[in-house]
Design a protein around this nucleic acid. Sequence first.
DNA 1: GAGTTTGAAACT
DNA 2: CAGTTTCAAACTC
Length: 728
Amino acid sequence: MSDDKDQDKEKTVVMDTPERTQITNPLSKFEDSPVFNYINSLSPIKPVKSVHFTQTFTNISFASLPSVFTSPHVSSLKDSKFLRRHQFSDPSKPELTSEDSKKAETSEGNLIAAQNTLKQQTDISSGNPITEASVVPLNQRSNLESRKLSYEAVKLMGPPAPSIPFINSGPENGSMRLEAEIGGINQLHHGKEVSACDWDSLISDASELLNFDSPSDTVAYKGSGQSALDPPSFNTSLMNAKPQVHGDNDNSSENNEGLKGAANNFEVEEPVDADNEGGSNLYRGMRRRCLVFEMTGSSRRKHLEELSNGSSVNLSESNQTVIPSDNKLLPLRTGNDSSKCKLPGIGLHLNAIASNLVDHKVIKHENSGSGRQLIISPSSAAYSSIGPGQELITKLPDAPSFENEIGPPQNVGEDASKALGFVGNDELSQSQTSPRKKKRRAESAGDTEAACKRCNCKKSKCLKLYCECFAAGVYCVEPCACHDCFNKPIHEDTVLATRKQIESRNPLAFAPKVIKTSDSMQEDETSNTPASARHKRGCNCKKSGCLKKYCECFQGGVGCSINCRCEGCKNTFGRKDGGSEMDPEVNECEGNGSDGSLQMVLYTEAEPVSATPATPSRFGRQSIPLPNSTTKGKPPRSFLAIGSSSGRFGKLNHFKGGLNKQLQTVGENEIPDILEENHRSPISGVKSCSPNSKRVSPPHSGMGQRSSRKLILQSIPSFPCLTPNDKQ
DNA sequence: GAGTTTGAAACT
DNA sequence: CAGTTTCAAACTC
């Protein structure tokens, strides 16, 4: 009993510690606290101060990182898919992997008193992954994807992957964590199965510990490209604390779990939703959510807080701390909604969302508190998982939810994801209220927000990019007025096959169309402005003057860039030639070609964002699970094929290895985008990245103006490829 | 709501 | 890669 109390106290202590920033030795701090001392006196177990060993597992962590980059948008998609399945699986929890079971056993076997240690262990095995996940969500995603789709990626990435086998388990773990973090919400259904209880408690503890770490992570991100290194360090610290209990088993599984954990973060959300809603996952996916994100944002948060209040962790607090995991969790937890949001967001298709995102960004920011960059989403995108997307759910699941809460938009992916999240909410509300004509409504109402996608396809069967839904990576829903629609879960195979085909033609076909520029990254909130984003491919308008929605740039709320081949550009968000009414930054784009410097961060569409970026639709709807496509497309090439690609890619590879959180935030999709652009514009492609992560001005002729811009990729090069293979 | 315009996507 | 066709959204009436 005393032990339990002690644990609780510890938790409280942890929770209370406002300063995450002090990453240095959260544990030590913790230990020093009077409460801790008191506890120690009570408990027979003597606390061992955590010693941080930065090195030990760094390799591993790095290895995992690379996976993230395997295939950005693909991964996102996969993620979504993954999520979807996960949802289904969650209830039954059949998924528990052997690893999980092992852990559970061990945990159970251990005395309660030992829980702390166990927790640490769990952290190590699963917890580390978590931290990683929080730090580098993308990686997790990638891992998951790789698992599902192909292990090749994993292999490439690195050593750790070997075990992988249990896709499902990962999610559970993640859910576990999330729950733990949340506080007592364990019951969220996750099916924690057998030892769920124990795990939860353990996890919660671990999560607390992790929390400390997380802050550091955040810091790292802010700091510099090196941030990538940080995660490992804190992981190691955890490791140290509980060294070796598990022994071999853990090692093999750890990596996987870590990945899983990351995945879990995203995934977790879904399960929650399912519980809350009580509806079938499918149903959820199907439904669109067209709530006003504003509403969702604040309301959700409140919701979560209320829910969480009872729970050990206060959402608000968590937000402050900005624990990555928390952020993610929160959204998830919060609700039902959150879950929805999350999943969808991640998804792939931030594209649709992107436009929305722009509008929403401001609002989102408000909500966001701490600002963790995390991933989100990407990927997110986009992240987002997407956000990467999968049932777009991937979306960025992570992104939306946590984004909302977290808010700090530093990363594009986050923004996107947020947007996605909002969108999702919006969709939900709408779906409930008035399913049809959301689109127009949304449009009329605000503009982008709506984001709820509905199509009116007559001949394409909603299996071509003509179809907005399909293009956004979501299934068509009732509001759609399409004929002979095949873009439905029932025809999943067909949809996936078609998608695959399209991706084979154009790997980036489903990638977000709007990318954020690096500038935004710095500015954070301001960065979200449309000006900071650009259309990936650019438009080709001849008559619209880029002043109507015919123009994809205009539609996306971004200025035209060099990439645009438009004539008579009058884009109010920024003209190709550099004249931008809206944004000064737009000027950077100046058509002439200087542009290259655009740093492309995913703007998940409605980035995530979602993931990711992150189209709005994703959130609400069931995202289309990504096919293996990741491997197919060229884009993946960049990601997957670490070595193969040309110089650019090579850099990317480095980038992968060294990827910082920033990259993660950008979202999976981003990378491809970047790559593409690089192709298109030699200058941009290079994105000169100094090893330091400092931006190196590209050789471009036009550079002068662009000098202001920072390239996101910059940071990448500095680090040698983390992947074992890559390591230099 | 029907018809036109527009530009992306798809095809050749 | 360029030109043409197809398509569905955006727009107008």
